[in-house]
Amino acid sequence: MSTSVPTSPRETSTMSVRPARPARRLRTLAASLALVLAGSLSGCSLVDKIGGADPVEAENPTAAATEAAYDSQFTRDGTFQSHIDIDGMDFVYTLWPTKSTPRTNEWYPKGNKFFSFTFQVYDLDRKLRDPFRTKRKAYLGNIKVTSRTITADGGRTQRPYRLDAEAAAITFDPEAVTHPVHGMLITSPKGSFELRNQKIGPMSNDTRGLELTFVADVHYETAPGSGQFVAKKVKQTVPIAIFESDTPTQVAKIPVNAN
């Protein structure tokens, strides 16, 4: 496996006795749009049926998007986790920087940056310690991750990380439980997809943010032991701040089994 393989209609009005109101409305609209933009970049998820087209990405994000990219849970907390509820199945993406580049406030354009991530699901219709046989099974087939940079001046988009592979073939567990058609088991606590030490390559010096978009092809049971499955794509976008510096991101040597 290699990471290389794998944004209103114009409003018109006539002159009124109280001309200040349209101006206030426009200011309110502008402020609302700014809040929507910032919220969308803080980490958004989306669920589609398998076969749906992936969202089209703007090639040159705006300067406002550049500022909002700093609102990153991953950068602020040193980890990112999302919970996506589909029919009572809680799909969980978790990302964190690895020990080779652990300080997210020192992720600079130059140099490589490393992260790990997991993806698993919990059947919320059952208690955590209920017998596993009473829980709906979910399986992960293909896992795809794309990237795009956000630059200070709206420059050319770069894509320093990419993944597109069958999950069972690349997960940390070499003997993952698999389904002959739907992929590897990801229902907790018996199954989880894990990928370690993923390399994000160097970016242009004007890069101020990075978005990673995850798309997982999943099948989950309609009822425990039913053998009947629902197919979905589970998507998650994770914003990451990149800080201005002429110094490359420092990469420390770590043991092969470090995380």
Rank of each mutant, 00 (worst) to 15 (best):
R126V: 07
I84Y: 02
V145G: 03
P109G: 01
E11Y: 07
C44Y: 10
R162C: 00
E166I: 10
D85M: 11
E211H: 07
F115T: 02
S204V: 03
N60S: 11
F229R: 01
T237H: 02
S16C: 13
S188Y: 14
Q250M: 06
L29H: 14
S100G: 13
V36W: 05
M15Q: 13
F172D: 15
R18E: 11
S188K: 05
L95F: 04
I242W: 02
K127L: 05
F119V: 08
L33M: 12
T171A: 00
D206A: 05
C44M: 13
P6Y: 07
D71W: 04
D48M: 06
L195K: 06
R196Q: 07
G141Q: 13
S245A: 02
A241G: 14
I170F: 04
P6F: 07
L124N: 13
S16H: 09
L185A: 01
S72L: 01
Q120S: 14
E57N: 06
G209D: 05
R133H: 13
R129W: 12
L26R: 14
V215I: 11
S2D: 09
A53Q: 11
P109A: 02
I170D: 00
T213H: 08
G201T: 09
T62G: 09
I254H: 02
A58I: 15
R208C: 05
H219T: 06
Y93S: 07
L163K: 06
D153H: 09
R162S: 01
K190I: 02
D85G: 03
T157K: 10
S2N: 11
T157D: 05
P102M: 10
P202H: 03
F117T: 03
S2W: 04
L46C: 05
D71A: 10
I143G: 02
I150Y: 04
T149M: 01
R18N: 14
R27I: 13
A231E: 11
D123A: 07
D164E: 05
A65P: 00
V92A: 12
S192F: 03
I143E: 06
L95N: 07
T94A: 12
D48E: 09
R21F: 14
K235D: 03
T75L: 00
T12D: 13
T104R: 14
K49W: 00
T12C: 08
K199T: 11
M1A: 12
H83M: 03
V92R: 15
S116W: 05
K99Q: 13
D48W: 02
S226G: 10
N60K: 15
R76P: 00
D125Y: 04
D48L: 11
E11L: 14
M15Y: 10
R27A: 12
R25D: 12
H179W: 07
K235R: 15
G191L: 00
E211G: 03
E59W: 00
A152Y: 03
E67N: 06
F172W: 13
N257M: 11
P131E: 14
Y220S: 03
G155Y: 00
I86L: 08
S4D: 09
L29E: 15
S188G: 06
S82L: 03
F193C: 01
S72Q: 01
F114A: 11
Y161T: 05
Y161I: 06
R156W: 03
A223P: 01
A30S: 10
L33D: 13
W107F: 09
T98K: 07
A23L: 15
D85A: 09
